[in-house]
């Protein structure tokens, strides 16, 4: 009965992962990360339901809090980079290397 939810979760996670890997626009990459996080949340909640306790639900709340914090910091970074580099491409921010 929970299988469908898990399949959906896997699909959402895969879409997110592929999006992170193939898209250059930082905003889109960011949204894909959110997608992956929410896929995880779905999986947690599903497992909580399946096992019959609340731990999975609690972890899902934690993930949301972390995701919210991450959005704040991440968007700020992206906006700042955009202001200085006039580009939102993750490939253009490549100064930190060998």
């Amino acid at each position: 009965m929970t299988t469908n939810y898990l399949i959906l979760s896997g699909l959402l996670f895969s879409i997110g992962a592929v999006g992170v890997l193939i898209r250059r626009n930082a905003i889109v990459v960011f949204m894909c990360i959110e997608l992956m996080l929410n896929a995880c949340n779905l999986a947690f909640v599903t497992f909580a339901r399946q096992v019959g306790n609340l731990e999975g639900q609690i972890v899902a709340f934690f993930v949301m809090v972390v995701a919210a914090a991450e959005v704040v910091v991440g968007l700020a970074i992206i906006v700042t980079i955009f202001r200085t580099r006039r580009s939102a491409s993750v490939d253009d921010a490549n100064l930190l290397k060998y």
Partner: peptide, 17 residues
């Protein structure tokens, strides 16, 4: 070894995956 650090975030993401 340090040539592995290319500066492309997506390469890192792929290797993490």
């Amino acid at each position: 070894l340090r040539r592995l650090q290319t500066g492309f975030a997506r390469t890192y993401a792929l290797s993490i995956l």
